[in-house]
Structure formats: C-alpha cells, structure tokens
C-alpha cells in the first residue's frame, strides 16, 4: 500500500505529523517546565513562619498570613452573595421562564458578563461599589465586584445540572399536590446539587486567581483583619494573587512572589481536581 504513495505526499505527512507531536510536546513541556520552575524557586521559602505571620519591619517577618485570611474572607463573602443569586437565576431560567425571548436575553447577558475582562470589572467595581455606594476600598467592595464576575459561572453550571433532572421527578411531585416552590426546594434543587457544587468550586478558582478586578476595589493592604473587624467595617486588604503582583512588580521581591505562586499552583491543582471529582461523584450519587 505504502509504496503507491508518492514521496512528496509521504514527506508532507511526515512533516505535519512531526509538527503535531511537536506542538503537543511543547504544551506538556511548557506546563511541566513552568510548574517545576515555580516549585523549585518558591517552595524553599514556604515555611510555617511565612504562612503564619504578617509582613513587619520590626519583627523582620515577611509572612502572608493576612493575604491568606483576606482570600478566605473574599471567597466566603462572594459565595454567600452569588450563590442565591446564581442558583435563583438558573432556577428561573429552567423552571419559571415561559417566554423564550426573555430566556435568550438573560442567557446573552450572562455570556456577555463572562466575556468582560477582569480589568473592566475592577474599574466598574471601583465606580459602583467604592465610589457610588461609598464602601471605600474594602474587602466588601472587592467581594461584590467578584459577585458580578462569578455570576455567569454559577448560573451556567447550575442550569446545566437542572436540565438533567428528569421531567418525571417534577411531574411526580406536582401530581402529588406539591406547589411549585415546594417541588423546587425538595425535588429539583437536591437533585442538581452536583452542578451547584461544581459551580462553587469553579467560582472559588476564579476568585483565587483574580488580581485585576481586586486591585482597585479591595486594595493592597497587608494587615491582619479579625473576623469581627471584617464584618463590622469595610477594611482594605489584598488577596494572595494581588500580593503576588505587588511583590513581583512593585517591590521586586521575587522570592516571596515565587513562594506565593507555588501556593497558588497547589491551590489551582486542588481546585481542578475537586471540580472534576465533585462532578463525577455527585453525578453518580444521583443515579
């Protein structure tokens, strides 16, 4: 067979095949290379002191404890606000909306939100929450900005999961005389928990990695903020990613930046794994 193919065709195939392998190899090399490099430069600096102190000239510590706390605060606050909104929105789209045009408009809006770059979120968040709502540069303003940003993620994953709930569940529930809300609360939402959890994990991933949207809304402070303080008044604070940017770009302290980067990598890895695991596990539980 092969002898019938002309040499030129053979050569062409060979070159193209080679390019394919080259590209795939390049992508793998890129990933392993950059991860390896970050771990190599960063991990030696990750010590207990580094994780548990705040940056201070007096005690000569350069810890990232405040940034870890801030990241947790912002994740928590964003999820508390965005979950009801996003899930509610998805429920409306799949259970309540009757007008197809309205559904289309809402889906278009969600897609638009997903396409807006984070620097614009940062700017608009500053205009709306920091200035217009006069929250000041604070974690609250940052979290609210991220609410807008993560809404499409939650809506999409929840909606996809709601669509897989069998129609017969709904019919069965309604036939037994339950109201629509009762049906949603007891039948529809519990069966779509996988989508909601996956959405949450993806949203956390986006929040952890976000920097441009938080730079002008949540600020750059590195102070430890207690839980009570956090709920009382809007305090400024930088998350891990923002502080990575500040250390690398503004202060040129690359060792700290690499240490934070290696922590972020581990978190990203964990979140990716969890998202896949949750989707699989919960889907199995449903069946």
């Amino acid at each position: 067979m092969n002898e019938k193919i002309s040499l030129k065709r053979k050569a062409n195939c060979f070159i193209l095949n080679f390019l394919i392998y080259l590209a795939a190899g390049f992508v793998c090399l890129l990933l392993t290379g950059s991860i390896g490099y970050i771990i190599y430069r960063g991990v030696p600096y990750v010590t207990w002191d580094f994780l548990s102190t705040k940056p201070s000239l007096i005690s000569e510590t350069t810890g990232i404890f405040p940034n870890i706390l801030n990241t947790l605060y912002i994740i928590l606050m964003t999820l508390i606000v965005v979950l009801p909104l996003g899930v509610g929105s998805a429920v409306y789209l799949t259970e309540y909306a009757k007008n197809k045009k309205v559904v289309k408009i809402i889906e278009l809006a969600a897609e638009t939100l997903a396409g807006i770059p984070s620097i614009i979120y940062g700017l608009v968040g500053m205009l709306i929450f920091v200035q217009f709502c006069s929250l000041g540069t604070s974690l609250t303003a940052g979290a609210l900005t991220l609410v807008i940003m993560t809404l499409p993620t939650i809506v999409r994953t929840t909606q996809e999961s709601l669509k897989t709930v069998p129609q017969s569940y709904r019919e069965g529930s309604l036939a037994l005389g339950s109201g629509k809300w009762h049906m949603i609360r007891t039948v529809v939402l519990p069966s779509s928990i996988d989508g909601i959890v996956t959405g949450c994990i993806l949203a956390i991933g986006r929040i952890v990695g976000e920097s441009a949207a938080l730079l002008f809304t949540a600020g750059m402070a590195n102070e430890i903020i207690g839980i009570s303080e956090f709920f009382k008044a809007g305090k400024a604070g930088s998350t891990l990613t923002v502080s990575l940017y500040m250390y690398a770009k503004e202060r040129g302290e690359f060792e700290i930046a690499f240490a934070i980067a290696s922590i972020l990598l581990v978190l990203t890895f964990l979140i990716n794994f969890l998202a896949k695991f949750a989707a699989k596990k919960l889907r199995k539980g449903k069946e």
Binding site: L85, V87, G88, Y96, I116, P152, G179, K180
Partner: peptide
Amino acid sequence: VNMLEMIMNLIFTVCGLIAVVFVLLITAFL
C-alpha cells in the same frame, strides 16, 4: 401556600433578571 408561591415566583424572576441588570449597570457606568 399560594402567597408563598407568588413571593417565590417574584424572587426567582428578580434573580433571573439580575444578569441583565448587571450588564446594563456596567454599560451605564462606563
């Protein structure tokens, strides 16, 4: 129950429209 249904219907409709509201807000502020 009917009252509750009506309230929930309203809440979900508001949630549903929130994405549109956000897009309009962003556009208007910019």
